[in-house]
Design a binder for these strands. Structure first.
Lengths: 228, 228
DNA sequence: ATGCCCGTTTGACCAAAATCAATTTCTGCG
DNA sequence: CGCAGAAATTGATTTTGGTCAAACGGGCAT
């Protein structure tokens, strides 16, 4: 069930996690904040479904949200897993009408939602808000294009290796590690894999020096992993 | 080899094919035109490669351009096939630096290229140019998300059926047809399939009433095709 | 300590598409 | 009209990942 939280300084601190604020000055951020509310949702809550009229775009403050498409026969595909700081559905500021995909919380989640009509109106007086949205759209577009390219070009072990290499922290001359901030089934969804396939990919990568313990992943030699 | 064409009223007519102009008024369009040049390129010419410093974004006026990613071992993936009216690389206005993918002409092609730095400067005086770019980015993002979802959720025959249904012109009560504006191997690239797989998908769809003759595709019953 | 539930792993089987090769068809040019 | 080259199709095989089922492990409640 979705619940509204009252505006407060805690809310303001939460809102500052939204990436979209990151290059706005005080008055710009205040104007955008005025179009937003902070809300909480429970794990597995549906935020919106494909085809519903689009009133808001969103930013994840805590937790995870998956964006997905259904087909008419019970199948579905994940399109994107949104993490804290990430926004989604802001493309509807310009491409209006209805939501083109569904959104579901995958955890107890706190989000900001921004009223699309109000934000659209703001852009005339605060063009740098438009710039922030343009940057956000650009980053999402590049990330989605990269995801499509990786799906089309790489095997499951290569996709997992690529993910590890992009997210790990180097420690020694060749070692690195990563702690997943979410369960492995969310990583599987992010990479467009079934959980079984992710598991098998990790198993395959053992011979390339990757060790998995729960959500902790350690890499013995990043150069070996780059050659996968 | 890329060649510059001199500004002329023919060039202006060509430029008006760029979708990005479509909702701009006279002075806005003129300002954007001033940042652009029209160029031609031959089939298979590389427009830019991944990693090169990004100076321009582009709009296809005639012909077709593919956007692609290479991996280090000779494999490549098509990310998008751009058709007349389509723009690409405008995400670099905000997400600067270098090109994130390569672009290649797939036909004798005429394009407009827009100087990124000059367009960025224009946005302060002409915020509706920013709005046009935001709209363009939004459409590209939605299209790429849809493509990713279709790749993940649908078989090859379903992807082809979906393409036909989205592009055909209804004729009778249940019949429809389509003439592909490009060779079938470009359709295969667009759908993320090998040409052999596209051929087999068309063959499978024969039993659903789809007839192919060169680039012409006829559908006996769109409702059957919708059920694929 | 035990039981339950959820997440993960493993095994087996199957389907889909890639890949490789060969053949056929189509298009454009001389 | 014939030919060459490219595009498309067809056949066979391999690879990859999905699906289904079962088992295991970890965390939480009793």
């Amino acid at each position: 069930m979705n619940r509204m939280l009252m505006p407060s300084s805690r809310e303001r601190a939460l809102l500052s996690r939204a990436g979209i604020f990151s290059e706005l000055d005080g008055s710009e951020a205040e104007a955008l904040r005025a179009c937003s509310t902070v809300m909480a949702s429970g794990s597995h809550d549906i935020l919106f479904q494909e085809g519903e009229p689009a009133a808001y775009f969103y930013s994840v403050l805590e937790g995870y949200v998956r964006l997905f498409r259904l087909n008419g026969e019970g199948r579905e595909a994940d399109i994107r897993i949104c993490e804290p700081g990430d926004s989604f559905a802001e493309c509807l500021i310009q491409a209006g009408g209805t939501y083109r995909y569904g959104a579901q919380s995958m955890d107890n989640t706190v989000l900001a939602r921004f009223h699309i009509g109000k934000v659209r109106t703001l852009l005339a007086q605060h063009p740098r808000i438009g710039t922030a949205i343009m940057r956000s759209l650009s980053m999402h577009l590049l990330a989605t294009m990269e995801c499509l390219a990786n799906d089309r070009m790489q095997t499951a072990p290569q996709r997992v290796a690529h993910y590890i290499l992009s997210h790990c922290v180097e420690e020694g001359p060749a070692t690195a590690s990563l702690r997943l901030p979410f369960p492995k089934n969310l990583l599987a969804r992010k990479l467009g894999l079934a959980p079984e396939a992710l598991s098998r990919a990790f198993s395959t990568l053992k011979s390339a020096g990757v060790t998995v313990r729960g959500r902790s992943i350690a890499v013995n030699d990043v150069n070996t992993l780059r050659r996968i």
